[in-house]
Design a protein around this nucleic acid. Structure first.
Lengths: 203, 203, 203, 203
DNA sequence: GATGAATGAGGGTTCATTCAT
DNA sequence: CATGAATGAACCCTCATTCAT
């Protein structure tokens, strides 16, 4: 039976400062493990130990392993939305190329920050029921991009947004796997890919 | 310690007709499970059961779970190479757009055949040591694409080949996740993306 | 590949009273099984069951079956060293025959306590990498005996110590297998064997 | 339930030359495995493979794994009896020291021939029901030794025979484990041990 | 007889989760 | 609330033995 969405919410709103801290420690430990040893090495006992918390406490804050993952995903989505928001904002009055460049760089920075982590979370995301907030964050982000593309006169902006992000994701993921680390070079290729796709579409 | 490559080779060359059948059944069952329930649901007991075979038999033919995965990956790579080979062949005397179109369609068909499976295998592939044959199949495929791009006058064809494939992979994967199934539409967008990227590069 | 020494160390220092108890129960159950049904009947499930503990608990304290064996061996070596130490101490100012008698009796008592167990552990010991403490316990014991023999003017005391212990071990083992239980009689024969060997050597 | 003795007999008296050969191949393969990789590595599939025989055929000749072991033990006992017989024969008219020397050397040669094998078989022997022939071989050997000791005027010759053999076994086993290979040195120490024990007894 | 494919009980180990203290 | 001991379902894999061909 697929796990219910209720089970993905943090068990309690941590009011006390101390609680908020513990909660953050747990998430940080989990991030760390995923980034360094991979998603398959993530297990609740290890997280608790690395967070300096007893396994019992961990279960006070999160109803289960997947809730931790869900929280990480939510966090990632929040960060991402913020980055995109800022990029969109700064690109408000720019031409297509510049606006795209800002978006692409935002996405790229996101992946470069914690390459393995973001990859793993995106995978996990697709195999899990998403809570309402995460879904909202995803739609907000999509709407934002769609808005930009629409304003720039792109046809079928919903689809274009999807494709453009997927392209970037694919290229960046593959480049990272191949060991590339040159931000500027990657940024260049992404811009070319995106503008190429968009240009070809409107041509 | 990362698992040794030896552990990925089939254990026994099936000599009798019966055993060739068993071997195939095991691989088919594994494919099926991955396609339907995901890579994380793959386990040797389930494979054996679904293949209508005892767990002991499974281990006669494969030294372990990962050997089954390795075999599936090898199979996928063989199919893919064959598809690409034929596309390259048919595109021999065509112009850039047509040649690209053939390649893109080959790749697309590949993904559409078993969407979840090919995705999962590609992921698994990146977390496993590859046997010699699989590596050779990958390089052969890469060389083929590089050759085509080179002949078409693309600059830095190695990188372009990587990017182009990664873009396609990204777009297709995302589209499939979103439930798209319209081959022609997808084919169109992929062509646009690829020619856009390549065109922008030479511009 | 021979198992690494790391795998032989207990996993967790028991902190609470309850867990110290569990740990001891596990070792006692293992001892029991070996003593009664033989080394080949030792398996983790049985140990857990007999210890009245879940299999999971067993693995909390021991990283595997061999770690349990290693712990038993260490325990045996500790006891043995203590026994020998006390025998050497009490024999400090005695003549050869008495000193030997004390040592022989110490060794004999050791075997009589848990005949099958000590035999099995000694066998297991020779087929396993030893952790540092166990090795130290063995050398300490050897050094102790060598010291005594040396003080008594025995030539080549290292070799004599080895031979003497091996002789005793052989005789006792065989006698126990044959069902003998008369401590005094055995003690007598061992003294004869040892003094005979040592006497013949110096003659 | 302890396995019945009937199950330890070879399944059929091989009349044909070919059969006898297969049977010997199986036993040779088993010996080899034990000598090189230890008793715990002995398994029927491996034996069959190493013997160049199908697993099915192996079971034609031996009703099970333990029957193979039993056959090896019987063989060992036969050899041993023959060696002892010859040593006793040659020592017929010699003095105690020489007679003992011959016996000791016979035993020593036995162990040196296949150190690990003889050790393993002796261990296996003590954990298995013995068939009539093996038991007879053991008693015959014992009787032979007892006869010699009796003739030489040793008191309680049954016990002395046991002890003497056990001593030798212990010393040789330990020396081999320690890597010694010098036959003459070992022979010397064994003679000293045996004559010391026997001398001390009669003194 | 010979073959080797197939079987499945048995044993090792992990890890998400619960609960007594 | 925190702790960490305990649980046991779920997996992985081996190997003695059987049986259809």
């Amino acid at each position: 039976m697929p796990e219910t969405i209720a089970a993905l919410h943090p068990r309690k709103r941590p009011r006390q400062e101390r609680s908020r801290r513990t909660c953050a420690d747990i998430l940080a430990a989990a991030s760390d493990i995923i980034e360094v040893k991979g998603l398959s090495a993530l297990n609740t006992n290890l997280v608790a130990e690395r967070a300096g918390v007893s396994i019992g406490s961990l279960y006070q804050y999160f109803p289960g392993k997947n809730a931790i993952l869900a929280a990480l995903i939510r966090e990632m989505r929040r960060d991402m939305l913020a980055d995109i928001l800022s990029a969109v904002d700064r690109g408000k009055n720019q031409d297509l190329a510049s606006a795209i460049g800002l978006l692409v760089d935002a996405s790229l920075r996101h992946h470069l920050r914690h390459p393995a982590l973001s990859e793993a979370l995106e995978r996990a995301e697709s195999e899990m029921p998403l809570d309402a907030e995460t879904q909202a964050l995803k739609s907000d982000k999509a709407a934002l991009i769609v808005g930009v593309l629409d304003r720039l006169g792109i046809e079928n902006p919903r689809q274009a947004a999807m494709d453009v992000f997927a392209m970037c994701h694919g290229i960046v993921h593959t480049a990272l796997q191949a060991g590339e680390t040159d931000f500027d070079d990657l940024s260049d290729r992404l811009r070319r890919a995106v503008t190429g796709y968009l240009g070809a579409g409107t041509a």
